[in-house]
Design a protein around this nucleic acid. Structure first.
Lengths: 215, 215
DNA sequence: TGTACATCAGTGAACGCGCGTTCACTGATGTAC
DNA sequence: TGTACATCAGTGAACGCGCGTTCACTGATGTAC
């Protein structure tokens, strides 16, 4: 890639990063402006048009990048679970919350914009979430506890529940971190962790007693 | 109430209704303007200030009204289930989807703004959702299938799962209605209904096999 | 019941501001010879 | 390698627009006597 192309690519990514940062810092994608993004990057507003036709085009690319990140994280967690099937639920969830805390923006963006302003972006996110659900269903098919369920549809239903709940968990976790400080935060975190552990146990208890023929 | 007070109350409610309608027609609350709302009602923009200090104040009142509506619907569904415990899951879910379809705005508002733009509104919604979860937990305590679970925390965890999933169901349902028409819509609706039925069965299978002491 | 004054929901003009978008430009980088 | 021209990411001025908010107002309704 030529020097010019490289610099262009950098500016482009800087615009995407700025958009992600701005739209996950307590406001929504539809309420941030093209000028704000350019300003944040240190570019003149008109330079924006050298990279994207409009905010929608940038948004769609952002959905792509964000979904790819989540896919990586979820797959990693899934694989860890497959190869360490006796891992306690608590440890898996600790890893999950750690990942969310380490890089919260993609989660916030995906969840907030899932039912948010722009129709085009909403559709793109819906599409990406069905992919995430399919991916997790595939991973789940390799898990010991779930071996008796070979019906792909049943696996996807389980995956659907887990993905949707995980989004709520991620947001609740970040809400706790926003709202509480110091020792009270730890207390709230632990209490919430116990709740999610119970939720997971409840669901897998349902799976263990699932009759794949009867259902 | 005097004539003047009555008319004022009407205008006030008209502003709230307009805000709900506008913020659930494909855009978000944070992206609609005070002027739009006034225009929709047939008032001059400055008249807005006779009723609310700003959009945030209107938003908070809207959260209140919307939450009250959802509370009514959910309680109604819960009661129907308690007094007809042998009701098939399918019938309960049909009632749910019917309620959502009959009056979708409160659901859209609650779900879209739950992680949406304004921090104040987000907090108010989080608060109302915890109330909805507590209410449903109380109703669930009276359900036969759940009789062996007397631990309030476990009931709330179950209620938590159901409320959060029900929000996703409601939105997915409306997405299907937006996206499909005619016979294809019915097909998509039925396929989705089967999925939710499986989800509910799975969760209640977990509940039936729950050991309240061990957990 | 009638009158004189008070209240106050709704009006309309005016403001300064940030927005998205257009356009002609500049000057560093790329390319052809 | 050096030169002459082409490309194109980024610039800066300018535009019209809808926004939130202020202010003094109007005229229907309410209240006191």
């Amino acid at each position: 890639m030529s020097i010019r192309d490289e610099r262009k690519q950098q500016s482009r990514q800087a615009l995407l990063d700025a958009a992600l940062a701005l739209s996950t810092s307590g406001r929504s994608f539809s309420s941030i402006s093209l000028r704000e993004i350019a300003r944040h990057v240190g570019l003149v507003p008109t330079a924006f048009y050298r990279h994207f036709q409009d905010m929608n085009e940038l948004g769609l690319e952002l959905v792509d990048q964000v979904a790819m990140h989540l896919k990586g994280i979820l797959h990693q967690l899934g694989q860890a679970y497959i190869y360490q099937p006796n891992t306690k639920t608590q440890i898996s969830l600790d890893l999950f919350f750690q990942a969310v805390e380490h890089h919260p923006e993609p989660w916030v963006f995906m969840i907030a914009e899932r039912w948010g302003g722009s129709e085009v972006i909403r559709h793109a996110i819906t599409r990406e979430i069905t992919f995430l659900i399919e991916d997790l269903a595939n991973d789940l098919g390799q898990v010991e506890t779930v071996q008796h369920i070979r019906n792909l549809q049943d696996l996807q239903v389980l995956s659907n529940i887990l993905i949707n709940l995980s989004f709520t968990w991620a947001m609740t976790w970040m809400d706790i971190n926003r709202q509480y400080q110091g020792p009270e935060r730890s207390a709230q975190q632990n209490q919430f962790k116990l709740q999610t552990i119970t939720q997971v146990h409840l669901i897998f208890r349902g799976i263990s007693n699932w009759d794949p023929v009867k259902q």
